[in-house]
Every structure is written in C-alpha cells, then in structure tokens.
Computed example of a mutant assay.
Amino acid sequence: MKYRTIGTDPTTRREVSVLALGAMLFGSVTDEKTSFAVLDRYVEAGGNFVDTSDNYAFWTDGSQGGQSEELLGRWRRSRGIGDEIVFATKLGARPLAPGTGYTDNPEGLSVKVVREAAERSRERLGLGRIDLLYAHIEDATVDPLETMEGFGELVAEGTVGLLGVSNHAIWRVERARAVAAAAGLPGYEVLQYQHSLLRPRTDIPDALFPDGSLGGATAELRGYLRAEPALTLVAYSPLLRGAYVRQDKPLPADYDHPGTPPRLAALRTVARETGTSPNQVVLAWQLGGGLPVIPLVGMSSVAQLEENLAAVDLELSPEQRERLDAAH
C-alpha cells in the first residue's frame, strides 16, 4: 500500500492509504459477513481510510440511514480497532423523517445539526473522535459562518479532526473557507466529488440538484485544486459503478456525448498494453496524476477489492498517460 497526507495541522493531519474504501452499502445491500470480510482484507493489505455517511443507506429501506455507521461500529468493536484506521463520515443530507429524502427534507448544516449529527455518528461508529467530517450537501438556508462555527467548536473540543466538504458549488467552498479563515476557524481541507477518466456533460442540469451543486470534478474544481495545493480530492464513483467493465451496467445518461467513445478506446488500448483491467487503469490514472486525488471505491466482494488493490502498484508510462488525457 502507498500513503498520502491529508490536512496541514500537525494535531489533526493523517497519513491515509491512497485507496479509500467506501462503506456506503455495508449493513444494507452488502450483508454483514461480506462487509466484514472486505474490511478485514482491506486492512490486511494496508488500507486505513474508510468512508461513510450518517444517511447511508436510507434509500434501501425508507429509513433515515445509519446502517453503514452502525456496521462499522460493530466491526471496530469486534476487531479491537483503534485510531490506526481513519474514519470519514458526513452530515447534512440525512432525511429528517423516514420515507423522505435529502432533496425535500434534509437535516441541513445549522450549528445545532452539526453538533447533534456529529454526536450521533460518533456513537454509531464508537469513536472518541471522528477523523474527517464532511458537510455532505449544500444548505443555502444557513450562513456559512454558522456552519463553520459549528464545525470549529467540535474541532476545538477534540471530537472532530479534519473538515471536508462534498457536492458544493466551488464558490460556496471558497466562501466557507474564507469566512472560516477570517474568523480564525479551521476550514475545509478535503473535497469529495465524483471524478473519473470519463467526464460527464456539463450542458444539462443535474437531475438531483437543479442548481448544479452536485456533480463531478469540473474543470473549475480541478483548477481550484491546482491553486490550493493543501487541499485533497477524494474521488467517489471513480469506476462509474462498474460501467467500464460490465455490460449490465451502462454508462449514466450524462456520459452520452462525442467525447466518451475516444476516451473509452484509449482506456481499453492501455488496458491491453498493461495486461490489466480498465478499472485498474482508471485508478492508476488517478493515483499517478498531477492532482492530489484519492480514489474512493465501494465494493461488494473481496474479489473486487483485490482487483482494485492491484491498481495501487500499476505505473502508467508518460506516453500512456498522455494518450488518456488527450483523448476526447
């Protein structure tokens, strides 16, 4: 395994494995025995960066979520896991009532929610301190200073380490970081967005968030990362939920544009040249690129995990990387 530092403050920064494990469906779609087996093998291979959220996976049973955090708490206790594993979770998108969702009835990012939701997550996970806590989705009804003050209180108390932000418009990320800095508060240091080799269309509104706040790692976000080298991107759905390798998993509709076929062709050529799978090439492309990217991969079997782990040691040549970058 290889590792990367996230965060800048010596008291909160962590060394994390370059491949993060997504636990979104653990405890719901993925049963406990399988989830524990994947977690055990990930740790055995040197992995130490596990990602979840307080609302995972509410959509599977009409609940408010929490199944993933609860399973991770049971796994921690059964294995005697301490602070050697870095746990990241998120708040802000948990439905306020069963049968509702995060677009119509989210918990939001008020100072009250930040404190209460973080405490519930700590209890479910069995943690004294959450290593990395994200603002999951935007809350335009709350002043960003209030949200950052809420997060800052938890960091000052030692119940939260690093702060992250997911699925926000970049101008909102910058505004939140600016008001935090002006107030002497900790700011967001880790960004979590969808990012893969293929790029979605940008000329259609997002189906979930009409204001476009939820989406991929746009050119604007990539430029922001280049301008702010202290930030890290955790890239979710890097393998597009199996669409690169499975016929029964078609690409999402927003990838249906003229730039996709040549990029796929370049990917498949490089996979043949390296004797690896397209999935492994995509992960290696992210890991070895110029941006500070940590792929976040969910998996429902140890076999899938093994394939992804092998990508950590796959080195693409500069010429292969150039072909992947240039195809469009």
Rank of each mutant, 00 (worst) to 15 (best):
R76Q: 09
R74T: 07
F87E: 03
Q67I: 01
D104E: 13
L71C: 10
A117Q: 11
V142R: 13
E123Y: 00
A93L: 09
W75Y: 11
R76E: 02
W75V: 01
V86T: 12
S121K: 09
I85D: 01
L127V: 05
I130M: 11
D131R: 06
I130S: 04
T100Y: 14
W75G: 00
I85W: 00
S121C: 11
G73Y: 06
P106W: 04
L109W: 01
L71Q: 11
R79Q: 12
Q67V: 07
G150N: 04
R129T: 13
E123F: 00
R77S: 14
V113F: 06
D143M: 01
E116Y: 05
S63V: 12
M148I: 02
D131T: 08
V113W: 08
D143T: 01
E119N: 07
W75D: 00
V86F: 04
Q64V: 15
G99T: 13
R74L: 11
G80P: 07
I85C: 00
Q67P: 00
A88G: 12
L72Q: 02
E149F: 00
L109F: 01
G128A: 08
L127S: 07
N105E: 13
D143S: 05
G82S: 11
R129L: 09
K90G: 08
E149W: 00
E146Y: 12
G80S: 09
T141H: 11
V113C: 14
V113L: 03
A135H: 02
T141R: 15
L96W: 07
R120M: 05
K112P: 02
A135D: 01
E138F: 10
I137C: 11
R74W: 07
L133N: 03
E70T: 15
A135E: 02
L91G: 13
A93F: 10
L132T: 04
N105I: 13
H136S: 14
E107A: 15
E70V: 11
K90S: 11
R115C: 05
G62F: 03
V114C: 10
S110Y: 03
V86P: 06
Q67K: 10
T89A: 10
V111N: 08
V142S: 13
S68W: 03
D61N: 15
A135C: 09
I81A: 11
G73N: 06
Y134C: 03
